[in-house]
Design a binder for these strands. Structure first.
Lengths: 218, 218
DNA sequence: TCAATTATTTAGATAAGCCTAAATTATTTT
DNA sequence: AAAATAATTTAGGCTTATCTAAATAATTGA
């Protein structure tokens, strides 16, 4: 089994690998883990000794197959617990992250699989991210960013790229939620800001917002 | 907040204090924690520095009020999670301990209280132990041991003193479960073994069994 | 291309929690 | 009450995961 810290590193490497493809640099990992580069080098060596990552000095890290499996298992647990918190315990989607960060490290295969069953095998977490199944298979997201839509196009809001409490609270305040149809009424060339229509409301949003909303085009 | 190890020590001290009344010796704690006396001395000093226990060299430890509150909170979480695992996730009562040992350390007041509500404020865990409420109040157990009953007396089985998987599996195998009425048909003076009647079955049990079953006399 | 800058690694500390072995204090036994 | 035994503490180490500061490698740009 892996330590809490090891699991967090594996998860971080996984996220960085998928976000940017290819090896993950020491500094990028340090930034993601909110720690120092020298601490990262230390840990990366330990993970390498355990064959969870492939590491060569000055060349960044990549997850091994075993490392990837471990990372996906942690992500599976994280997302399942998020669903539990929102669907069963009245948490809002902006309150789940911190608690799920703790719950994702609980070690019990039976717990994970029974929780999955109890929640009726959810496919996505409250932020629209796919939940790996017990075999580690992901539903690959077929989605674009709202910022990529052109004037006049429509789509259904299916996920958030930034799931910080601040962003989610902005969305709540403006009644933007997953499953809603969004139409781009206007798009400003200069700053990429948009006027969008949801339900019967029109709303002006900046590029920082639209570039963090995943859309399934209709 | 307290570390995982600190919480486990506080819990252990709490259990030993209530079981034997009065200060807890270093060796007793070492035995309970499955560790060495020297490690206990180390930790007890740290807990004392944080005013969670009162400690004087060679005189054992006692929980302070703050330490007692922390211990009760951990016990509350442990028992709530046990109820969750049995009632919602199809765990048997002999499978919950290990997982609850992990879940009891999750830090989120909202999580604990929403879980309590979700479970409809259970008063007892699957082994019959009382669950402290959000203010730390226990339902004090008004119960005796089956081994204290005399020939001819009856009671309702309301809890187990030993909640090891081995003991619980013995009980399952012999169809002994909480809520059942038990009558002492015979009691052997020599070894305190008993013949008991439950449902329509008669069963011979040794003192080791009867001294680990809590009974509410009828 | 070579000097400056940036990224990364190494060296040496630190803290929490644990260990063994040795020293010290308490308790029993005779 | 002294000697033997048991309980407890101290001293000194170890591991994990972190840090700062210094050294080294890689990259950039003039």
């Amino acid at each position: 089994m892996f330590s809490l810290s090891e699991e967090n590193y594996l998860k971080a490497i996984f996220h960085l690998e998928t976000a940017y493809k290819g090896g993950v640099s020491t500094n990028a990992l340090a930034e993601e883990m909110q720690t120092k580069a020298s601490s990262v080098t230390d840990m990366v060596k330990r993970l390498s000794d355990k064959d969870l990552v492939n590491y060569k000095k000055y060349q960044g890290v990549k997850l091994s197959d075993a490392g990837k499996d471990a990372a996906i298992e942690v992500i599976r647990k994280h997302r399942l617990w998020e669903v539990f918190l929102v669907d069963k315990l009245n948490f809002n989607w902006d309150e789940v992250h911190e608690v799920a960060e703790q719950l994702e490290h609980i070690k019990s295969e039976k717990l994970t699989n029974e929780l999955d069953k109890f929640l009726e095998y959810p496919k996505r977490d409250p932020h629209g991210d796919p939940i790996p199944d017990a075999q580690g298979n992901f539903a690959v997201a077929n989605r674009a960013l709202l910022s990529d839509l052109k004037k006049g196009e429509t789509g259904i809001c299916v996920g958030v790229k930034d799931s910080s409490a601040e962003f989610l609270q902005y969305l709540d305040k403006n009644k933007i939620s997953l499953g809603k149809e969004i139409k781009v009424l206007e798009k400003e060339d200069f700053d990429q800001s948009m006027i969008i229509k949801m339900d019967r409301n029109e709303l002006m949003i900046s590029n920082l917002i639209s570039a963090n909303l995943f859309i399934k085009t209709t």
